[in-house]
Amino acid sequence: MTDTSYYAPQSALPPQTDLLSDRAIVTEAYTVIPRGVLRDIVTSVLPEWNGTRAWVLNRPVAGGATTFAQYLMEVSPGGGSGNPEPQKEVESFIFLLEGALTVRIEGESHSLTPGGFAYLPAGSEWSTANEAGGLAKFQWIRKRYEPLEGYTAKAVTGNEQDLTPGAMPDTNNKWRTTRMLPVDDLAYDMHINVVTFEPGASIPFAETHVMEHGLYVLEGKAVYRLNEDWVEVQEGDYMSLRAFCPQACYAGGPSNFRYLLYKDVNRQITL
């Protein structure tokens, strides 16, 4: 496989000589957190974890995306958590960017390398450990699971490099999607995909839909249309989009533009 680049931000503080300017944007329709602001001073320490720092990329807030939380996690050698999820009603998805991570699900161990992922159903017993020599960096997505009578979500593990992407119609395979959770199973109330655009490919219309999005850029750069704005993004940047935020993009190159995508799916609107 050739699509194997996963950017993990470097967290050291910038020098005092740097200008106070960046590309961070927060609106009611969308938020852009550029990689340059993921610094030591904005980390969080989670009580369920040891040897670990977290950058909180999204949390439910009024006027923003409300269905999920998303973190950039950095686990030192020997670190991890024996009880990472404090809420039994919450499901999780882990996507490894750098290093190695052991995930144990119901007593069974799974070794993740970059591109590796694990879906952890709500109520399941799972743990993580960095048993390697370097830092382990990964994206962690959490969502309160919405049960559906007659369906049971099961744990899923794998590596996106081992999956065959699906081409979007009429794009000559220049826009393709790697789907890491079953898309035809109503047991799952979220989809997690890796979306790839080759240079020059685009979303040629302003998608306006009910799904919220969390997008972490793995590789490359693009201009993204968010609401009425064109925003430049690159690897390591993060975007959260509320429901119905118009969105489109154009991949300018020179490399592929790839991002990890969350969206909520498969459930009736609760009134």
Results as ranks from 00 to 15, higher is better:
194 V>I: 15
179 R>L: 02
199 P>C: 06
178 T>M: 10
193 N>Y: 09
174 K>S: 11
179 R>Y: 04
194 V>H: 02
178 T>V: 15
190 M>Y: 08
197 F>H: 13
171 T>M: 01
200 G>N: 06
176 R>D: 02
177 T>L: 13
191 H>D: 10
191 H>V: 11
171 T>I: 05
191 H>L: 15
196 T>C: 06
185 D>M: 11
185 D>V: 13
196 T>R: 10
186 L>R: 14
190 M>C: 09
176 R>Q: 14
173 N>P: 05
199 P>W: 09
188 Y>F: 13
171 T>A: 01
180 M>D: 01
170 D>W: 12
198 E>P: 00
196 T>A: 06
185 D>F: 12
200 G>D: 08
193 N>M: 13
171 T>G: 01
180 M>G: 00
169 P>E: 06
196 T>I: 12
175 W>Q: 04
170 D>H: 12
196 T>H: 08
167 A>C: 14
182 P>D: 04
192 I>R: 01
178 T>K: 10
168 M>Y: 12
197 F>W: 07
173 N>C: 13
193 N>C: 13
185 D>W: 11
197 F>C: 03
196 T>K: 07
167 A>K: 07
174 K>E: 11
198 E>V: 05
196 T>S: 09
168 M>G: 00
189 D>Q: 10
188 Y>Q: 01
179 R>A: 08
171 T>W: 02
176 R>Y: 06
171 T>C: 01
168 M>I: 07
170 D>G: 00
173 N>M: 14
189 D>K: 13
169 P>W: 09
181 L>P: 02
200 G>R: 08
189 D>C: 07
177 T>F: 02
177 T>R: 11
183 V>E: 10
170 D>Q: 12
187 A>K: 03
184 D>L: 14
170 D>T: 10
199 P>V: 07
185 D>C: 08
175 W>I: 08
180 M>V: 04
177 T>H: 02
